[in-house]
Design a binder for these strands. Structure first.
Lengths: 408, 408
DNA sequence: AAGCGTTTGTTCGAAGTTCTAACAATATGA
DNA sequence: TCATATTGTTAGAACTTCGAACAAACGCTT
């Protein structure tokens, strides 16, 4: 039950019904392809006549295409409809402290080309260099004309609407207006988003089997920082100033360990990669400077190494891991109590040890979950091999094609 | 940008456009009454012809009525349209530990009758007694035919969809299916909801001047417990199991004071009335039993008395109050970082001392808010005299009349 | 090979919408 | 009295879904 915003509404015109139904048909085709017009009509509970028109329009818009004819026991054979995502391209960029990831993929999220290179922190050079790489990649892959935009994902606070990077401490970027520069340099429409929210968008918009029915979920990425995306009723929660979702800095204990954000006791300060490593090595974070907090270089000892040692029988490594797992679960409990999602997606280096930590996480979650139903919220691990952040960047471009039309 | 749920969607029919526009018109009339058809047409950016038809239908549905003719500088005088909320009634019930509140009001939230009596904790007697009171009240007020439903508000966890009270510790109710019993006993449709969420519904659906533009907000009620309702994009967040919004039990410090819920360190354990009083009297909550936690009776010393003493110059009382204010602000900071609402509504006994505590609350909020914009989130106090929980109960019945039609 | 039943996909008129434009009703002011 | 301005209604055009009929395609039986 949604309230109509009397300051910002859209009246229905005589074409609104068609727009709505065309979009519904498109989504059904995407999920059930290959599918015949007759089958689509049954799923939509409308007559085949209507579907004929809708399909014709979608074909004209180059959103779907007719494929082979199918088989039936009796009667005329159906002609199958397919979604057209293979020849619609997007550039996805993930800027991290150590490396920048650049991918070309289609609208289904399928990877066509990937480049990984050292991040350039000076903005003008970063833009210039990236534009060159993008042009080269598009040319090499013969995707010059079919690329519909570029999604950029950044670890930090981003105002998606204005394209302003408010604060990305890992990159040292603050109040950087990079979107329009990139758009000008590449000639592509550019979308910028926080990495946690973007990854949630990937789960929401790109084709996946297991998650078709989930309309409310949380995406939690545990890495250098903790990125969170909140999806409620099929819509990403962006908030009034477009900074919603920052569960990473809720306190577990107000006077807990020091966090990169400058506060103390944040969830992130308990479960980030640095926190896990600190437990293992016995570092005292409160005594480290901000710069050394950032500086755990790419070639040094990482959480992946720690996981390997834990698997090898290093008891201290396992203890550090279990401690992180416990705090992860305690934080998830709060999220579950507040948002009550139908599932939670987890990503990040520690999730490679999921078989080792799942029990501890669930136990801690149950400890502070207010109902047994909430305690049983499904936890799904998203593999790092899928490049969830890059998929999120791509989803920023692909999403508008499939979204419900704004009405009322 | 909302994703279409392919498991649960609604195709547009040839009457969908009309339904949408009729509902938009109704909401605009409610907000700008008295308003002429021509003015309405301008606000909706449609022709007067369309508005004529919409208005005719709304009059037939008895949702609006034609009033007096207005004045204009030149030309034909307009006939004003008015919303019809005065003769549509709802019964609102607020069940609390000490008292039960029963109100008859119209769809604008205007109070017509109010009864306050000692709460009966035995379910069968509670139902029987309430049914008698409701029938008597409807008869006395001559509202027998025009009452469209009963909203019941309870402090605790409620599954609004099934009408099941999962756990209301203050009442000692657990897994109680009270909705259908009440419906059978009164012959009215019954809606049950948690008090925090219901109060948020009141802010969302009942007529208020100052809140017309806010589509994302939080309602926080600080009383015996902490009730929270979250509204995102004009829609109450209910969650997958309908238990969303429980910010009251997020930890401020994991090993903090004991909470009524059985856990430790919950926000509620820092700011509830009991917590405030405990600070003043130097009680040690961890040593009290669950029963004595509940048992702060109606005639004993309350937070209102404490506020009076603080105003009278009692330094200890003021200290206790400021401490609560500080923890209130710290908790609000997390909410602001997570949901990033456009405003926050505050209710409860401590808010009567708002002039004393606002500074401390804002300071604590700013301390842990991640952006300056978030730190400046408007805080609005909802007066207890308005009976926000009862208004919430009424809103449960009135809301469907004004909600946007479900589409796509 | 013809005919029948079944299923797919198209077509056409009916009914319901908004949109455009004209028109009637009503009031003011020169 | 007439021009002007504003409100509210009405009739036809353009665009929808809906219902039903129809053509196309295919397997099976006679």
């Amino acid at each position: 039950m949604r309230r109509i915003n009397t300051r910002d509404f859209r009246v229905a015109t005589r074409t609104t019904s068609r727009e709505i139904n065309r979009r519904i048909a498109l989504n059904l085709i995407r999920e059930h392809q290959p599918i015949s017009r007759a089958d689509l009509a049954r799923r939509m509970s409308v007559t085949r006549g209507v579907v004929s028109v809708l399909a014709h329009e979608l074909i004209e818009q180059e959103l779907i295409y007719e494929g082979a004819t199918g088989e039936t026991a009796r009667g005329r054979k159906p002609t199958f409809l397919h979604i057209r995502t293979q020849d619609r391209m997007a550039i996805a960029v993930d800027v991290r402290f150590s490396k920048t990831y650049l991918m070309l993929c289609d609208f289904s999220g399928r990877q066509l080309a990937l480049e990984i290179y050292d991040t350039i922190f000076a903005i003008p050079q970063f833009v210039k260099d990236l534009a060159v790489r993008v042009r080269r990649m598009l040319k090499t892959q013969g995707a010059d004309g079919s690329c519909e935009g570029m999604g950029v994902v950044v670890p930090g606070m981003v105002d998606h609407r204005t394209g302003l990077i408010l604060n990305a401490p890992a990159l040292g970027w603050r109040d950087v207006a990079i979107r329009d520069q990139l758009a000008a340099a590449t000639g592509l429409p550019v979308q910028i988003e926080n990495s946690g929210r973007a990854s949630a968008q990937a789960q929401l918009w790109l084709e996946r089997e297991e998650a078709a029915g989930t309309q409310s979920f949380i995406y939690v990425s545990v890495s250098d920082g903790v990125g969170v995306g909140v999806v409620v009723n099929g819509e990403l929660v962006r908030g009034h100033d477009h900074i919603a979702g920052e569960f990473g800095h809720m306190p577990l204990s107000l006077d807990g360990p020091r966090c990169m954000c400058g506060m103390t006791g944040c969830w992130e300060a308990y479960i980030s990669n640095l926190a896990t490593l600190s437990r293992y090595f016995g570092w005292n974070l409160s005594k480290l400077s901000s710069n050394s907090l950032r500086g755990a270089g790419p070639d040094s000892f990482t959480v992946l190494d720690l996981v390997a040692r834990a698997r090898g029988g290093d008891a201290k490594a396992n203890t550090a891991l279990q401690s992180t797992a416990r705090f992860l679960g305690l934080g998830l409990a709060t999220i579950v109590n507040v948002v009550n999602p139908d599932s939670i997606y987890l990503a990040g280096e520690v999730t490679t040890a999921w078989d080792l930590i799942e029990g501890t996480v669930r136990e801690a979650l149950a400890e502070r979950a207010l109902t047994t139903a909430a305690a049983r919220t499904p936890l799904r691990v998203v593999s790092t091999h899928e490049y969830p952040r890059l998929r999120g960047a791509a989803a920023l471009i692909a999403a508008p094609t499939f979204a419900a039309p704004r009405v009322a």
